[in-house]
Design a protein around this nucleic acid. Structure first.
Lengths: 162, 162
DNA sequence: CATCTTGGTTGTATAGTACAACTTGAAAAG
DNA sequence: CTTTTCAAGTTGTACTATACAACCAAGATG
């Protein structure tokens, strides 16, 4: 056990070598993960890319929203979202309803098919994650989950909209 | 049995709801992170993409290796690596030396410039990560780091070479 | 030598992305 | 009520990362 660990919890300070190497490791591992995730998601579910999956997920969670909201939430350019949504509409997973109060706005909703596919992919992803995490002690899982939430809570700059 | 298990921690079992929601969270947060990482890395360092960065990093770590090794290590198709390396060579960050024992093989090495740029980007990434993790207790950092390593240790299928 | 294997490149196609220019409709300013 | 400004989306264009298939070149094996 390191001195840092023995002395209880401290925040990072210059010269804290254990924390330094931990930061290095986090950086390296997050990078490695990021590099792989897209391709591996694509291989797992050719029918729904990682991006489409997250967009559908947001629609389900929110019960429909505007393209602009998706762009803001996911730090994507509105043109990117426009094309993604167009593709999802073409494949019948999403439908647009013009907001009667503001004809510029198109509120996006999952279709029945969209809901079904999303559920399928969610289930299959869940299975994969479960398998991957099967040997983990429950306490480590909950800690890992909270670390990730905390890590991701950091605000990132947004393109096109920020 | 691990120390964790002895101390009352359990691995995931059906019906363990705390673990279930933790797995959900991990899935959601890893996904969110993966979606953002590339673009955010690109905004941080327009001069060196995430992929190029990791390739250079591997070259530095190994003190030079073959394109095929990079492809295997990063689960990339050899054509992808070929083009990435070609780009890195064009920008003078990498040089190739034909292996005298096997003229098919081109051993890749960082150039001085490559080493310098890599160091710069590493430093700037390190700073960003440090800032982001500044408020974390040291113990959480080391745990998070070890969770990530464990998570990433899971083998993923390789395209083109696997 | 003939064939197989290995390392690498090139042709082609696709997804995802951004930025800039544009359209359309709403809201604010005069 | 115009005119200007703003907001939501779309489209044109370009670029990166990627895969797969077809290929070439050079060793290795029969």
């Amino acid at each position: 056990m390191t001195a840092a660990e023995m002395s209880g919890e401290r925040t990072v300070a210059p010269g804290d070598f254990a924390a330094d190497t931990a930061v290095e490791t986090i950086q390296r591992e997050m990078t490695a993960f990021a590099r792989r995730a897209r391709a591996s998601a694509g291989r797992m579910h050719p029918e729904l890319s990682l991006v489409s999956y997250t967009l559908l997920g947001h629609l389900e969670e929110r019960g429909g929203c505007r393209a602009t909201d998706l762009a803001a939430h996911y730090a994507l350019d509105k043109s990117t979202v426009s094309r993604q949504v167009a593709a999802l509409e073409r494949t019948g997973l999403v439908e647009r309803r013009v907001d009667p109060d503001d004809h510029r706005v198109q509120v996006l909703h999952l279709t029945e098919s969209g809901r079904r596919i999303l559920a399928q992919v969610t289930e299959s992803r869940r299975t994969a994650f479960r398998e991957r995490l099967a040997d983990w002690p429950a306490e480590d899982l909950t800690r890992f989950a909270s670390y990730l939430e905390r890590y991701n809570a950091w605000p990132e700059p947004e393109p096109g909209n920020g």
